[in-house]
């Protein structure tokens, strides 16, 4: 049974990746999850320097989901390399670093520093965080901005470059195309949906940042649709995510067109989810007689539905 896949020059042993911001720096989970069994670990978003993030309250639950406005609290790229990367290497984790910037130069600088560090497998460009005012999503919401960040980072690194796309646009596939044209090795999607919740007694927003990003099962059908649209538009490997909590959810994303997936919110609920998902994938492959899991990617059969539509 072959669950592996390639993203640029990087080989992942299976398609299950811990989503950025939902797995700390990976080391927090090292005692309870064998990090080397995951396809990859996307660590929390990093800027050049440390950031304190937003004051609490930072999360609120909503039906089948949650809003977060963490505000990209983080230790900065230098401390990450000093304090976290050695342990991640020791644990043989495939480390995908999620990088952030308030300016184009900052993305480039962070990418350059990480490219010189031993033990980084790929760079995921966070151009999609809805929770910070400067940078980030302003690149991810403009086609020229997306193209500019990806091509600038492309020039300074040999590591696979994976821009992470925001769903807060009308046509996400056009952003995948811009990323492809700029030399990305893959795209990941989706980041969270900009959202809001209000306490009706106090009439105050439930988050200190007023708005936040919606994640969890609530967003899954929209994320699946977006992966499907991107699959129809680009040839790049796609890393799909948004509300994955069961093996059927993983399979749904892959059939829609994802080569790999990330799991975020569901890891909060069940930190032992990884072995369950892996077992489930193996069982599905056995039952459906699939030798290479990548053969499943993008196999959604729309013909019957399309015919019904034409004849109606």
């Amino acid at each position: 049974m072959d669950l592996s896949l390639n993203i640029g020059s990087l080989r992942l042993k299976n398609p299950l990746i811990a989503a950025s911001g939902c797995f700390g720096y990976g080391v927090e989970y090292a005692d309870i999850v064998d990090l080397s069994t995951l396809g990859g670990v996307a660590v929390k978003g990093l800027f050049l320097s440390e950031r304190e993030g937003h004051p609490p309250p930072r999360i609120v639950e909503t039906p089948s989901g949650m809003l977060n406005a963490i505000g990209l609290q983080g230790i900065g790229v230098h401390r990450f390399i000093r304090e976290k990367l050695p342990e991640l290497r020791e644990r043989r984790a495939v480390v995908i670093v999620n990088i952030c910037g308030t300016t184009l130069d900052e993305y480039v600088e962070v990418a350059r520093i990480l490219s010189d560090a031993a033990g980084v497998a790929a760079l995921e460009l966070n151009i999609s965080c809805p929770n910070i005012k400067e940078g980030g999503i302003t690149f991810g919401c403009s086609l020229t901005g997306t193209h500019a960040v990806v091509s600038a980072v492309r020039k300074v690194t040999r590591l696979p470059v994976i821009p992470k796309l925001t769903p807060n646009v009308t046509d996400v596939a056009s952003f995948a195309r811009a990323a492809e044209e700029a030399g990305a090795d893959a795209v990941s999607l989706v980041n969270t949906f900009l959202a809001m919740a209000i306490d009706v007694r106090t009439r105050r927003p439930r988050l200190s940042n007023i708005v936040g990003g919606l994640s969890g099962p609530a967003i899954r059908p929209i994320a699946v649709r977006m992966v499907y649209e991107c699959r129809n538009t680009v040839k790049l490997p796609i890393i799909g995510m948004g509300g994955i909590a069961t093996v059927d959810d993983v399979l749904e994303f892959m059939i829609a067109g994802a080569n790999a997936v990330q799991v975020g919110t569901a890891n909060f609920v069940d930190p032992f989810i990884w072995s369950r998902l892996l077992d489930g994938l193996r069982r599905y492959m056995r039952d459906e007689k699939i030798a290479r899991l990548q053969d499943l990617v993008g196999t959604v059969d729309t013909t019957a539905r399309e015919q019904a539509w034409i004849s109606s």
Binding site: C22, F23, G53, P56, P271
Partner: peptide, 13 residues
């Protein structure tokens, strides 16, 4: 308020 209890989400700061 905690999201995960394991240090993964940075919501309980």
């Amino acid at each position: 308020v905690m999201g995960c209890g394991l240090g993964g989400c940075y919501s309980c700061v």
